[in-house]
Amino acid sequence: MIETRDLTRRFGDVLAVDRLTLTVRPGEIFGFLGPNGAGKTTTIRMLAALIEPTSGEATVAGCRVGKDDSRLRAQVGFLTETPGLYDRLSTEANLSYFAHLYDVEDVPGRVEHYLKWLGLWDRRAEPAGTLSKGMRQKLAIARALLHDPPVVFLDEPTSALDPEAAHLVRDFIGELRREGRTIVLCTHNLDEADRLCDRVAVFRQRLLALDAPAELRRQLFGRKVVFHLKELKPEYSLALQAFPFVSGVQAVDRRLLATVQDPETQNPALVLALVEAGAEVQFVGELRQTLEDVYLQLMKGEAAPREL
């Protein structure tokens, strides 16, 4: 649905995006992760034909960026970092205005559909400025969907929202996934990306990693199994290290952390080995690495970006 090849953007001397090459598949939620100034917003602005790439190329929903921009804009929905609503206009007028600009056929029907979907039909005449932050954000997302775009860009959709409002918006994004839309999500919220995204791209000007969150965790950290023991002796570590599929063993307090590839099939042998070595195993579990661990690991050693 989206393909970029060596997509690059400079602002004067500042390199904002450096030779970004990636593919976003139809129907997936794709996360862009990176620190402030990493080029996330610049990238989606390029993909939404708001700014031009300095070099490289990109195709979104079959439209070439920089060649077919007007048609491309009709194919994408774009949620900006701030909702950008006309506060003095009613919620209905806000949606109606954009529906006309997107050449939606049945404007009143489409607007009614989204206002009812948002639970705002009874407040359709109220100025958008009177809505809560969460509702404003949902209204802004609905605005980006009015023309039924196959691709939706969401830039920091839950930033500056309280937990309840953020939850509302995340549920809403979940509904969009069920509709089969391709969603590109820029976020700082790694927990949110972990929960929502099928795949994530971690980048700081250039692409550092791209895969499913679980796969990134596995690639960077393997899977760690924790054995809680009644007491810890050196021979227990040795018993685990004897297995070729164990790539590392750490002893912490009365716990042993073993890095393995497939705990579901390999754990029984490890437990048996520990018992045979005389250990009393109290509890076995998996140490879950978070996407934040992956992110921090990837960012280690990367130079700080220049703010744009």
Binding site: L50, T80, F98
Partner: peptide, 14 residues
């Protein structure tokens, strides 16, 4: 000022 220009420019309006 109200940050409404970016969504507006994202529409297919010349």
């Amino acid at each position: 000022v109200t940050r409404t220009l970016e969504p507006l420019l994202a529409t297919p309006v010349s």
